[in-house]
């Protein structure tokens, strides 16, 4: 069971603003899914290596070379508010 304070804490970590009404709904929905997931506790995983890739690629490397991205202007165009080619945001504190 995930209580309301935990839901608020998680929403804060996830940077999602939620209303009081939503807190209740998330508490119920997340608890239901987490209870159902508990069935994995039945599996003996003591000697199992966790999966980190599903096929055999290991240490994919490439030459440490800089490739210029040619569409810089298109990216700047997407900024909500721009100033001299910079992305302008509100103050942090």
């Amino acid at each position: 069971m995930i209580n309301k304070d935990e839901v608020k804490h998680i929403a804060g970590l996830a940077r999602i603003g939620i209303t009081e009404k939503e807190v209740e709904k998330f508490s119920a929905d997340l608890s239901a899914v987490l209870d159902w997931i508990k069935q994995l506790e039945k599996v003996d995983t003591s000697k199992v290596v966790p999966t980190s890739r599903v096929h055999g690629s290991i240490n994919v490397a490439r030459e440490d070379k800089v490739y210029a991205f040619s569409e810089k202007e298109k990216i700047i165009e997407l900024f909500h508010e721009k100033k001299n080619g910079y992305d302008k945001v509100r103050s942090v504190l």
Binding site: I2, E6, V7, I10, A11, L13, A14, R15, I16, G17, I18, F26, D29, L30, V33, L34, V89, R90, S91, V92, L93
Partner: peptide, 28 residues
């Protein structure tokens, strides 16, 4: 408003319920 409110509001109004649910579940 500060930067944090931009995050909270944009992700509140921008994402649908299922997306929020999965982000929350994964964050937890």
């Amino acid at each position: 408003k500060k930067l944090l409110e931009t995050y909270l509001d944009s992700r509140h109004y921008g994402f649908g319920k299922e997306v929020q649910r999965r982000i929350m579940l994964g964050t937890y």
